[in-house]
Amino acid sequence: MGETIKGQQNDQKKKTNMIKVDQECFMKGNDYIINVEHLHKQFLVDKKPMDVLSDINLSIKRGEFITIVGHSGCGKSTLLKIMCGLVDYEDGIVERNGHAVVGPGPKCGMVFQDHRLLPWLKIKDNVGFGLSALPKKEREESVRKHLEMVGLKGFENSYPAQLSGGMSQRAAIARGLANNPTILLLDEPFGALDALTRIQMQKEILRIQKEQSTTMVMVTHDIDEAIVLGNRIVVMSARPGKIMDIIKVSEAGRERNSEEFGRYKKKIYDYLFSEENNEMTYKDVSSDIDEIQKKKKNAS
């Protein structure tokens, strides 16, 4: 893909990181299932390096639900891909379970922004895609259970082309859950869903997260969703993506009609739209960053 800029140096860096990592894990009592320190990421665009992520520091505890918000293009998807080992990084430490991330692992699932079902596989085979190591019976059982979980019972033998966008996305979530990952990274998973299904799925994903104590990291462009789901909300700046703040959400603040909820919302809006909030207040805009950006475009 040609995205590694300093290939060899990186390998060395990663090796030294690994030693560092072990000490740190020991020091932190291995509480952190994901640990990102001083992460920098560049992409080569027209042969010129472009900073995408800059000095990302984020430690995630086992069983935590982290949500990430930020303008589109700020590197949220890239951050998730680095965490699960699909994308290389230049600088910094990225660890899962105390080990430097060098590639994908079975315990770290990912649900992509576009559903990425394989069009030639029936839904049941798409959901069971990562389960080829399991015996047939267990595989079928897991597929059945997770399809039911996302409300797609009866669509086992359909092809992705026969499903609506929202259904495809739910199938992709089922695939992400099917091999019982301890970490699940979700990249705007509910973006294609209608408002009702979205709220339903939010409840469902919270239930799953509690039930299986999965650690979840979800990128979302819906600020309400970020507050409802996240134990902590990571607010990122525009490119190059930096972490502006990590907001801890209290249990009470997750209630949509609580006063605290409103305060969190204002805080996030202020971070994301600090430059132009003289003409727009958080009250009269919808909860969707994308929509705000559209309005911005139309206005100018």
């Binding site: 893909m1 699960c84 699909l86 590639g103 994908p104 692992g105 079975p106 699932g109 990912m110 992509f112 576009d114 990425r116 394989l118 030639w120 596989l121 895609f129 990562g130 080829s132």
Partner: peptide
């Protein structure tokens, strides 16, 4: 590339990647 990324995520070896992703896409 996105489909190949799925194959990498699930750690398919090169032969499996060929059989399960490249080949059906090219069929």
């Amino acid at each position: 590339e996105g489909m190949l990324e799925v194959a990498r995520l699930y750690k398919l070896n090169p032969w499996k990647t060929f059989i399960k992703v490249y080949l059906p896409h090219a069929l």
